[in-house]
Design a protein around this nucleic acid. Sequence first.
DNA 1: TTGGAATGTCAACAACGCTGACTTAAAGTG
DNA 2: CACTTTAAGTCAGCGTTGTTGACATTCCAA
Lengths: 170, 170
Amino acid sequence: MAEGPGNQGHGGESLLYLTDEQLRQGIEAMFFAYRAFTADPDRILQGNGYGRAHHRAIHFINIQPGTTVNNLLSILGVTKQSLNRVLRTLVEDGLVESRVGRMDKRERHLYLTEAGAALEHQLSDAQRARMRAAYRQAGPEAVTGFRRVLEAMMDPEMHRHFSGLREARS
Amino acid sequence: MAEGPGNQGHGGESLLYLTDEQLRQGIEAMFFAYRAFTADPDRILQGNGYGRAHHRAIHFINIQPGTTVNNLLSILGVTKQSLNRVLRTLVEDGLVESRVGRMDKRERHLYLTEAGAALEHQLSDAQRARMRAAYRQAGPEAVTGFRRVLEAMMDPEMHRHFSGLREARS
DNA sequence: TTGGAATGTCAACAACGCTGACTTAAAGTG
DNA sequence: CACTTTAAGTCAGCGTTGTTGACATTCCAA
């Protein structure tokens, strides 16, 4: 089974032999876990004409109310045309409000309406429930490691946008 | 928010207060990390007319040579029409070979050709490199926790298909 | 004031999910 | 053998969400 060097005990020291098999399992785990991770929101959104892209937009508008389209663009890493299609439907449906900037009238500042906030809650509740269950099952130490690996995996560019950076240092 | 008493202890002990903010950061970390995680293969595949779906098919055919279409279907969790579209192009392009089953002639057993294996290598090398770097940066303890949380997050259905199950139980 | 950069919008296309209906071939079962 | 089920493949069509290209508006600086 390619057990390899049977360490990874708990030392924290050194070596860190990483066999291809171990890495492959990590890759596969990411695939299966991410599928499960997005399953609940996908289910909620399907049928309403919304999808994962709408979820992402709603999520980040909720976190940074008043963010501009351009800022959202750099966070989501898609083209403005792609984002615009999503934003247009959200605005039309009254979930997002788009206000012209006071300083710079080219900018549009985005806010969730009450209806938008309600949907956001529904979505994030479902996702948090799964995350909470996984965290509970895995234990607090595992959670720390989980977060650490994910952060190391992000592109440095994107890591800037990650909001879990508060107490990271100290 | 129904925060309630912080534990319905099923594991038994353990506080494990999980604030919404902590959970939200985990959710966001998954989003950013997964994006980075798929970025390298996506870059390699783009332009060849292939995409993430082709990558997934190639990955699992490589791991289970001779797997049937039906088995692949249940692993990937897509419809046969969706998978067939991908498989057809891979067979046409000579990356995958489809052999009629000897026992059951209805089945088609799938194998990577040399060209397919070469592409698989290219893809998994890129992905392993990123995974290895993240593992190294995070440390061995973190890796264990990472794996533990991801496994807890999977749907039980899908967890059956996860190949990293050898020594898990002790 | 004029030209360039930034911001946002519209149109069209590709990848890849989906449903539904259908065919072919082989296996299983009375 | 007739009947049903299973495995695989196909066709047609649609929805979400990426992409590029073209274009309008706004700001700012030469």
